[in-house]
Design a protein around this nucleic acid. Structure first.
Length: 262
DNA sequence: AAGGATAGCAACCGCACGCGG
DNA sequence: ACCGCGTGCGGTTGCTATCCT
């Protein structure tokens, strides 16, 4: 009953989905005002206290998200500029879908904004490469098997008290590429070329997108390369993200020196 | 003009991590 | 060592606006 009254007062194009008293859906200007006042008084953080201290019927996560992605005063509004776009591309080539990391290099832009921009702006490119979704799943499954085997081997070696240095030594990049080739024996030549392109790009620490002004004649090729590549290193990055999650410092080197499966 | 397709974006969800008790 | 809480992150969903046929 209370919820219904509240929903009528606040209104919602989402049909006012209510779960255990929390409001969901688009924020109203009144809610924004309450949240802004809360941050003015208490600063950022302790988002779960917002509801208790302001009467706002939003959970902590929702409040944080609203503040970070929309209400923060230092947010830059407006379209992504070509310069920012180039930065996004370059950083995505290096870090994959680590949107928050990319966002740190673009003051005033949020990870959500960059993520949305990437997904929408290059959606067509996804289609071109998403024909291989099933292949990707198979590759993912194989990679997981590979990782499990690797982990098992490491565990066995540790148990056998083999020199830890030997266990933890990282393969060189060509070795890693060999593993990729072995891992995906059904890869087409093109796919394996993408792997090679990826590594050579990383090793050279520069890709075609590093060119300050790509010519219109090769721009499509550039996008295609990037997007096809994404099919590969989009999954590839999952591992890096998982194992590197605590490394929040923007760093240009790890991808060039850290093999995929470590 | 109408209706379907697509783009853009706000918001939600689930998971993982860090930290303090 | 374990647990709960708060937070951050990436992926996904769903709504609105715009475009296209």
């Amino acid at each position: 009953m209370v919820c219904e009254i509240f929903s009528e007062q606040m209104g919602s194009s989402w049909g006012f989905i209510e779960e255990i008293g929390w409001r969901k859906g688009p924020w109203t200007s009144d809610e924004d005002r309450l949240l802004i006042e809360y941050v003015k008084l208490h600063g950022e953080g302790r988002w779960n206290s917002v509801a208790r201290l302001t009467g706002l019927r939003r959970n902590g996560k929702s409040c944080r998200l609203r503040w970070v992605n929309y209400l923060r005063p230092d947010l830059k509004r407006g379209q992504i500029t070509p310069h920012e776009e180039r930065i996004i591309l370059e950083l995505h080539a290096r870090w994959g879908n680590r949107w928050s990391t990319i966002a740190r290099s673009l003051p005033g832009r949020t990870d959500n904004e960059i993520k949305n921009y990437w997904r929408t702006h290059f959606k067509k490119k996804i289609k071109n490469s998403s024909d291989n979704v099933e292949k990707s799943r198979a590759r993912l499954w194989k990679r997981q098997q590979f990782q499990q085997q690797q982990q098992q081997q490491i565990n066995n070696q540790i148990n056998n008290q083999i020199d830890i240095k030997k266990v933890m030594s990282l393969p060189t990049m060509p070795q890693a590429k060999q593993e990729m080739t072995i891992l995906y024996p059904n890869n087409t030549i093109d796919q394996q070329d993408q792997v090679g392109f990826f590594y050579s790009s990383m090793l050279n620490n520069s890709t075609c997108i590093s060119q300050s002004e790509p010519s219109s004649s090769n721009e499509d090729i550039m996008w295609d390369d990037l997007w096809n590549l994404d099919d590969f290193y989009g999954h590839f990055m999952i591992n890096t993200t998982t194992y590197n999650k605590t490394n929040t410092t923007p760093c240009l080197q790890p991808m060039a020196t850290t093999p995929a499966f470590y």
